[in-house]
């Protein structure tokens, strides 16, 4: 692995993260000791076969789930020390979210949805920044519409704008293109790419789509709750190759057992 460019300070970091469901013989280790730095100003993809722990990793790092052991830091703050109230505030102010589906509150308009975390925090929005974001997602003329009046791609772009509105330390996206057709998906991914390149944001995306991952600076591969591999500046073919190898490995293990 080459690293001719010096790595920036991590926006978030996981240290020996473990998550275990159940106990004794029936215990399932969703995360079996993950140590990972997510660099600021980079677009990172987390990939892996189903059950590899990629979603659990993201949930733990995004303060949505609590790990069984190990530590998570977001922007230098150790999440393990925070109570629910502080975690909520942290999610509101330092983390942005884009989910696979159902990202928007149906009773609010697009612009209200974008401003929701800021309003909840009681912060005044940075109008210049907002204009930049809204311009970038290209939805200025749809701001007064409710989610039901928007297409799936438009809804996801509103969700992206919301995630960025509070200038978070890091944006977590969980399969953001999973429910979209390829054109809409490309729009969403280009926007995420731009937010990293033009605005210096940090984006982490869980996906199993090689095309989506090819927009990223770095792809981290997970299998059986462990980081097994990573590629920088990946190409689509490279990613597919890695995925196939991982799936073959997994299949082989299943046959052995």
């Amino acid at each position: 692995m080459t690293s001719e460019t010096s790595s920036p300070a991590p926006a978030a970091r996981a240290i020996d993260l473990r998550k275990t469901y159940g106990s004794g013989d029936s215990a399932v280790h969703a995360l079996a000791g993950v140590t990972l730095d997510l660099e600021a100003g980079r677009f990172t993809a987390i990939m892996g076969p189903s059950g590899s722990g990629k979603s659990t990793l993201m949930h733990c790092m995004a303060a949505l789930d609590t790990p069984s052991s190990g530590a998570v830091e977001v922007g230098g703050t150790d999440l393990g020390r925070l109570k629910d109230k502080d975690l909520t505030a942290l999610r509101r102010e330092r983390i942005g979210f884009v989910f696979q589906a159902f990202n928007l509150i149906p009773t609010l308009t697009a612009s209200e949805n974008i401003l929701l975390p800021l309003n909840l925090a009681g912060h005044k929005p940075d109008q210049e920044w907002l204009d930049t974001v809204i311009e970038a997602v290209g939805l200025r003329d749809r701001l007064g519409h409710r989610p039901t009046e928007l297409s799936g791609g438009q809804q996801q772009r509103v969700a992206c704008a919301r995630a960025l509105a509070s200038k978070p330390s890091i944006v977590f996206a969980d399969e953001p293109t999973g429910n979209l057709d390829s054109t809409s998906g490309a729009e969403v991914l280009s926007f995420l790419r731009r937010s990293v390149d033009d605005f210096g944001q940090t984006v982490v995306m869980v996906t199993h789509d090689a095309v989506a991952a090819s927009y990223c600076d770095r792809v981290v591969f997970l299998a059986d709750g462990l980081v097994v591999d990573e590629i920088r500046n990946p190409k689509r073919e490279q990613i597919l190759e890695h995925m196939t190898r991982l799936q073959d490995l997994a299949a082989a293990r299943t046959t052995q057992a």
């Binding site: 909520t88 505030a89 999610r91 509101r92 909840l120």
Partner: peptide
């Protein structure tokens, strides 16, 4: 969703 994006209990 509201809880995830930062609404307190």
């Amino acid at each position: 969703l509201l809880r995830a994006i930062g609404m307190s209990r």
